[in-house]
Amino acid sequence: MNVCFLMYPWESIKSPENDTSLTLIHECAKRGHGVAICTPSNLTIRNSVTNAFCTILNRSEKIPASIKSFYKKTTTREEMLPLAGFDVIFMRAEPPLDPLMLNFLDSVKDDVFVINSVRGLREANNKLYTAAFEDPDNEIIPVTHVSKNKDYLIQMIEESKSDKMILKPLDGFGGSGVILIEKSAMGNINSLLDFYIHKKDGTSDYVILQEYIEGADKGDVRILILNGVPIGAMKRVPGDKDHRSNVSAGGTVAKHKLTAQEKLLCKKIGPRLVKDGLYFVGIDVIGGKLVEVNVMSPGGITYMNKVYKTKIQEKVVDFMESKVLERNAAFKRKTDLKRMVEEA
């Protein structure tokens, strides 16, 4: 199996032991699969064929067990390769999503197993996907408003039954730009909304205003879902000086056993994720409610592995291998049937 990881540059990995993408790459290399890496900016078309300027990992007979050693000792080479020649394209690029990248992938999506699917990425690349989930009684989704109309947002804050709400940019990630607002500090709301909505170039951005869920100050739960089923979870606890629980924002992790409500949530959204081709996602949950769906580069494998002494990446690569076998078997069957017709 040959896998192309569409991600950030190989040389930009700062903390190998904590990098989910590198953990997946390491597992592929351990199994003898070919691995190449390319960034969204390195996609190109030559003679009507979509190619990528790839960083190819040189194969080695002995793969270091330590991911840190693997990263340090692995040698690479550069080569332009056709994307349709790969068995799997694994999306691991960081948000925000580059729509041009998806246009390139459109040309090969029928030839390669893309995880996550191009259609799914288009629909779910930002927080609108979560906000638009069908949940009229707000059983699994907190009350959410998405707008760039400042007057409307202020009205929603004033009408909210809670004294607290969460404000965040629509295209933020890693906890960036997430702030807690309170009705008791309404004097700052105008300037905050101006800052979030209006850009220096005269354009404007959408923001998300979301119901504050009690217990959010104690952290959230990151759940990794593979093919619609949860495969790992961890509690993320905010640091002393930050309300955000993201590890990148100073949060810490702890073991977490899924509650009945969280299991129900996963059961409700799992089929929709699979239907949309979102096979490997990370969801953030607070108080049993879905706060965010991460579809581009969900992280957390390394931290869950440490907490539970497991290897979640094995399940992910097992799934990739099974999908490639299915596709190859379907192609062989179709080829054999066509040959039978031609030879009749």
Results as ranks from 00 to 15, higher is better:
221 V>H: 03
196 Y>W: 10
208 I>M: 10
211 E>G: 09
175 G>D: 01
196 Y>P: 03
208 I>F: 00
221 V>T: 14
188 N>H: 14
212 Y>H: 12
205 D>M: 07
224 L>H: 01
193 L>N: 00
186 M>K: 15
219 G>M: 06
192 L>S: 04
183 K>Y: 09
191 S>C: 08
190 N>Y: 13
187 G>N: 10
222 R>P: 05
175 G>Q: 04
189 I>Q: 07
219 G>V: 07
179 I>S: 01
192 L>V: 13
206 Y>K: 14
201 D>L: 09
204 S>K: 04
176 S>V: 12
209 L>Y: 00
174 G>C: 05
217 D>L: 11
220 D>R: 07
180 L>E: 09
178 V>E: 06
196 Y>Q: 03
216 A>W: 07
216 A>Q: 12
212 Y>G: 05
186 M>W: 07
196 Y>C: 03
192 L>F: 13
196 Y>D: 01
200 K>G: 08
216 A>E: 05
215 G>E: 06
186 M>V: 09
201 D>Q: 06
215 G>W: 11
178 V>S: 02
212 Y>K: 08
218 K>T: 11
192 L>C: 08
219 G>Y: 09
184 S>Q: 14
203 T>R: 05
180 L>C: 11
204 S>F: 00
174 G>A: 09
188 N>S: 13
203 T>I: 08
194 D>Y: 00
224 L>W: 05
181 I>H: 00
194 D>E: 15
201 D>I: 12
177 G>C: 07
181 I>C: 04
189 I>T: 14
224 L>F: 00
210 Q>N: 10
228 G>K: 11
217 D>K: 15
216 A>L: 13
218 K>E: 13
227 N>E: 13
210 Q>I: 09
191 S>K: 11
225 I>C: 05
204 S>D: 09
177 G>S: 07
216 A>K: 07
225 I>E: 05
175 G>V: 07
214 E>K: 15
201 D>C: 10
183 K>F: 04
185 A>F: 10
184 S>C: 06
